[in-house]
Amino acid sequence: MGRGSKIEQAGMQQASGEKTPRTERGRRTLRKLLDAAASEFGEKGFHEASISGITRRAGVALGTFYTYFDSKDAIFRGLVKDMSDAVKQAAGEAVREPMSALEVERQALAAFLRFASEHKEVYRIIDEAEFVDPASYRAHYENTAARILERLKAGADKGELRSDLHEAQAWAIMGMNVFLGLRYAIWGSGDCDADEIARQANLLIGEGLSKN
């Protein structure tokens, strides 16, 4: 399954030490392996997926796999990091200055919804990480919440948001975004109106639900 530009441009540092590719050819091969792993894990799940299935999808020799990863667990960890970086990049590219704090959140959510619509496997893979590699799972959400909190604090510094912001508000926004993606990008009929969904969510952030 082909991968979109957001994933193609994401960080390529999943292999560590001497396994980090030093050449453009090596980086392309690593990209092929990660893309193939996304398809393999996304379709079969971690336990049914295999290294041979990944290399067949990537069109590389089985021995090539071990140039970059030590095991199926290792490439899964690398893939979770890769997808987390791609989500971060998709949201980051949607944010342009000058933009109000609420507009930043609206655009970031819309970008995430579009990304999830194009890469539905991201939900299965991240969810499986809770059991396969809990540290990667936790890091994904902690880093995402930290980015949201940083954006909110930037809005507060500009006088656009309340000054008594709490970490819990960033986690609440992240939780809303995750489940909106599940409902509309994953369970939807394929015609996810990312901009309208993000607009509705933005009304909740900006105005709340109280009548007055």
Results as ranks from 00 to 15, higher is better:
Arg3Ser: 13
Arg3Tyr: 04
Gly4Glu: 09
Lys6Gly: 04
Ile7Glu: 05
Glu8Arg: 13
Glu8Trp: 11
Met12Phe: 01
Gln13Val: 09
Gln14Arg: 04
Ser16Leu: 10
Gly17Pro: 08
Glu18Met: 07
Arg22Ser: 09
Arg22Pro: 01
Arg22Val: 06
Thr23Ile: 05
Arg25Ser: 05
Arg28Leu: 12
Arg28Asp: 11
Lys32Trp: 07
Asp35Ile: 03
Asp35Val: 07
Ala37Thr: 01
Ala37Trp: 02
Ser39Pro: 00
Ser39Leu: 02
Glu40Cys: 02
Glu43Gln: 15
Glu43Trp: 03
Gly45Asn: 12
Phe46Glu: 10
Glu48Cys: 09
Ser50Glu: 15
Ser52Trp: 01
Gly53Arg: 15
Ile54Ser: 03
Thr55Leu: 06
Thr55Cys: 01
Arg56Ala: 04
Arg57Lys: 11
Ala58Glu: 08
Ala58Ile: 04
Ala58Asp: 08
Gly59Tyr: 14
Gly59Leu: 05
Val60Tyr: 13
Ala61Asp: 12
Tyr66Leu: 15
Phe69Arg: 08
Phe69Tyr: 15
Asp70His: 08
Ser71Gln: 06
Asp73Lys: 09
Asp73Glu: 12
Ala74Val: 00
Ile75Leu: 02
Phe76His: 08
Arg77Pro: 02
Gly78Met: 04
Gly78Cys: 09
Leu79His: 03
Asp82Ser: 11
Asp82Val: 11
Met83Phe: 00
Ser84Trp: 02
Ala86Trp: 01
Gln89Pro: 05
Ala90Phe: 01
Gly92Cys: 06
Glu93Ala: 12
Ala101Glu: 06
Ala101Asn: 03
Leu102Met: 10
Arg106Val: 05
Arg106Leu: 10
Leu109Asp: 03
Leu113Trp: 00
Arg114Thr: 08
Phe115Val: 14
Val122Ile: 15
Val122Pro: 05
Asp127Phe: 00
Phe131Gln: 12
Val132Ser: 04
Val132Gln: 06
Pro134Gly: 08
Ser136Asp: 14
Arg138Gly: 06
Ala139Asp: 10
His140Trp: 04
His140Glu: 13
His140Gly: 10
Tyr141Gly: 15
Glu142Pro: 04
Glu142Asn: 10
Asn143Gly: 12
Arg151Asp: 10
Lys153Pro: 03
Ala156Arg: 03
Ala156Val: 01
Asp164Glu: 14
Glu167Val: 12
Ala168Gly: 05
Ala168Glu: 09
Ala168Asp: 09
Ala168Leu: 10
Trp171Lys: 14
Met176Lys: 00
Met176Trp: 02
Met176Val: 15
Val178Trp: 00
Val178Glu: 07
Phe179Pro: 01
Phe179Gln: 10
Phe179Cys: 07
Leu180Lys: 00
Gly181Thr: 04
Leu182His: 01
Leu182Phe: 08
Arg183Trp: 03
Tyr184Ala: 12
Tyr184Ser: 09
Ile186Lys: 07
Trp187Cys: 12
Trp187Ser: 07
Gly188Asp: 00
Gly188Glu: 03
Gly188Tyr: 02
Ser189Tyr: 00
Asp191Phe: 02
Cys192Arg: 03
Asp193Trp: 02
Ala194Ser: 13
Asp195Lys: 10
Asp195Val: 13
Asp195Arg: 14
Ala198Asn: 09
Gln200Asn: 10
Gln200Trp: 02
Ala201Pro: 06
Ala201Val: 05
Asn202Thr: 15
Ile205Glu: 03
Gly206Asn: 13
Gly206Met: 11
Glu207Leu: 14
Gly208Asp: 14
Leu209Trp: 13
Ser210Glu: 12
Ser210Pro: 02
Asn212Tyr: 13
